[in-house]
Simulated scan of single mutants.
Amino acid sequence: MIILYLVTILLDCLHAVYLDEYDHQPKARGAPSSEEIEFEPVITLTKDNDKMISMKNINCDNFSEYAHNCTNEAALVYNSIKKSPPLPAKIYDWCKAIRHLTNCAIDWNSDCKDVTESHFNEESIRGHMHVVNNICNDESFLSRYDELPNCIEGSGSAWENCYSQFKITVDEQKNTTHEWTHYETHFFMCCARAKFVRCTMDALFNMPNVCPYEQAVTLQQFSAIVSEGDVFQNCDTNMMYSNCPGGDPRPKGDSLSRLMNKRAHNSSLRSESKIGVILLIFYFVCGLIK
Rank of each mutant, 00 (worst) to 15 (best):
C286K: 02
D48E: 11
N49T: 15
T237P: 05
E184V: 13
F222G: 02
E160Y: 05
N79G: 05
F141G: 10
V42T: 12
I81L: 09
Y18S: 14
I3Y: 12
H265T: 05
N69I: 07
I289G: 06
R250S: 01
V170F: 02
H178K: 11
C136S: 06
S164K: 09
T181I: 09
P41N: 05
E38H: 14
G276F: 11
I37R: 01
I91F: 00
I168K: 06
K262Q: 15
N161F: 08
R198W: 00
L10E: 13
P86T: 05
L280V: 15
P251S: 01
C191N: 06
I58P: 02
I278M: 12
R29S: 15
F205P: 04
S140C: 14
M201S: 09
R258F: 07
R193E: 04
I58K: 01
Q25N: 09
L259W: 07
S257G: 12
E36M: 07
W94T: 10
I152T: 04
V77I: 14
V210F: 06
T116D: 00
P251Q: 04
A194P: 04
C95F: 01
S223F: 01
Y241G: 04
M239A: 01
G287H: 06
T102W: 06
N69C: 05
N134D: 09
M1D: 14
I289N: 01
L269S: 10
A89Q: 11
I81E: 06
G229Y: 03
I106N: 00
H24A: 13
T169E: 10
N79C: 07
A158Y: 01
A158M: 08
S155L: 03
N134M: 11
Y5N: 13
K290I: 11
I53T: 14
Y163W: 07
D236M: 09
R193V: 02
Y18T: 12
M1A: 15
I281R: 08
W180E: 07
F141H: 09
S143V: 09
N69Y: 01
I289H: 01
H186Q: 07
D111W: 02
E38A: 15
N243G: 08
K274H: 11
D93T: 00
S273I: 09
N238Q: 12
E123C: 11
A67Y: 07
N261C: 10
P86S: 01
V210P: 03
Q221N: 14
L269C: 13
R198A: 08
N103Q: 03
C95G: 05
